[in-house]
Structures are given as structure tokens and as C-alpha cells.
Amino acid sequence: MASEAQRVPGSPAWWASRTPAPAYRRGRPPMDVGRIVDTALKLIDEVGIQALTLRMLADALDSGTATLYRHFDGKDELLALVADRILGEVRVPPEELDGLSWREAVTVAAEAFYGTLCRHPHALSLLAAQVPVGPNGLRARERLITLFLSHGFPVGLAARAFTALGHYVIGFAIQQHGPGTPRPEEQSQLRDYYNALDPDSYPSTTAAADELTSVPLHEEFRFGLDLLLDGLEKVRRNSSQEPEEVRGHARGH
């Protein structure tokens, strides 16, 4: 089973077993992996994941597919590195978080993550395919969980908060910006469709037709994010009060 898991690009076993390419092999000199991955992401942004081929990538690099196969066993391995490359693009300088409440700091981090995903709509499915455990994914996870812990979140709640936040941001980006999602001009068609429904059968939908199709995406994103943070704040307060209640109960006995 372990050997099978290692063959799945992007899995924990694959990342754990991955080693840098040797500095020298026969044939052409090795190519910088970072350059290969950056070029692959650029092509995905232009043509999409399905259209990308190793031949296309090799041509863009002015190289041959044999050179690429010296670094990757196939396209799936390349895509796993592209996914991690996207996570490495999220930048939140520590000084931007200085003096902020946990909620403000998490909002800055979530907005930065969302903004990065919006720049790569054709690659969004890569972030949903597997748990991101590459180098950049691990660093992002460590930073955000540390942020929660530094603001008094218990370890269990910090872990759940991180997971919920990641699911929300990635899910929202995929639904609203992924391939095939309605464009702004199509929203008016959707509004007309809702308005044309039988109001006796769909009274609530027809009443909310304008609101369902007119809220800017960024406002919708922040609304959902604020609801999530409201819930986390409530749970955080309850968890911080519990030890004191337990101690008081113990003293009473």
C-alpha cells in the first residue's frame, strides 16, 4: 500500500520520497525546476490544465520532452508542483499583521489567498484535488495555525479553524472563478430567469432575484468570511472560558 501511495503525485508519501534531480546526468544539462514549473503555470493560465501537454511546455522552454522527463515521471507530477507553486505565491509580510487582532490578521491572510487563486482560475482544481502538503503548503499551514495559537486558540480549534478557512476560500474561488462559472454579463440573464419564474411556485426566489444576482463577488466573499469568523470567535470564547469554569467547579468541591 505504501508503494502505491508513493506513486500518487502530490500525496504525503510522494512529497516525502521526492528528492532533487542529480546535478549531472548524460545528455543535456538539467533545467531549473522552478523555471519549468513557472512556465507550466503560465501556460495553464493561458490554455487550461487539459490543454497543457509536456510537448507544449517543452516548446515554450525551447527544450525537449526528454529533458522534462528527467525531472518528472509525467504530467501529474508537474501539476503537483504547480499547485504548490501557487501556494508559494501567497504573500503576507509579517509586518502587515503586527498589532492586528486575530480576526483582522486572518482576514488579511484569507484575502491574500483568495486574491492569488483569482489570478489562476484555470488551475483552481489542483488545489481541490489533494491536501496541499508540499513545501509551500506546509509553510502556509504552519503560519496560519501559529497565528491562531498565538491568539489563544486551543490546538484542536486552531487546526479546525485552519481547515474550515482553507475549504471556504478554495471552495468559493472554484465556484465563482473556476472554468465554466457565469460571467458578469450572464448574471443579468440569471436575474431575468429568476424573475420569469412562476411566483406562486417560487415566491422566495422571485422576491430575492435582484439580491441573488447583484452582490459583487468580493462583497459576497467577505460576507461568508465574516460569518465564518463570527462562529470561530464564539467557539474561541467558549473554549477560553471552559478551563476557568472547570477550576471553579473543582474549588467548590
Rank of each mutant, 00 (worst) to 15 (best):
A21H: 12
V106F: 01
H249R: 13
D198K: 02
Q50H: 07
V82G: 01
P182D: 05
L225N: 06
E96D: 12
I44P: 01
E142Y: 05
D32R: 14
E89T: 06
M1G: 13
A209N: 07
V106N: 08
L225I: 04
E96A: 09
W102V: 14
P216Q: 09
R25H: 05
L229K: 09
D200S: 13
L117Q: 07
G252Y: 07
C118S: 09
I145K: 15
V155Q: 13
D59T: 14
R143F: 12
L138V: 11
T39V: 10
A40I: 03
G224T: 06
Y114V: 00
V133D: 11
G64Q: 15
Y114K: 09
G180I: 09
V33E: 15
G156V: 08
G74C: 08
A123F: 11
S214A: 15
T181H: 03
V90F: 03
E233P: 02
P12R: 12
I174D: 05
T181V: 06
W14N: 01
P30E: 10
L126F: 03
R103E: 14
Q187P: 00
R119V: 00
G137H: 04
A207D: 15
T67R: 09
E77W: 13
N238A: 11
D84G: 07
S63R: 12
G171A: 04
H71F: 01
D45V: 07
L227T: 06
T116S: 06
R85N: 04
H218Q: 11
S204A: 15
R222P: 00
G88Y: 09
R103H: 06
H151L: 01
F223Q: 00
G34H: 09
Y168M: 04
V37G: 02
G252M: 08
A58H: 03
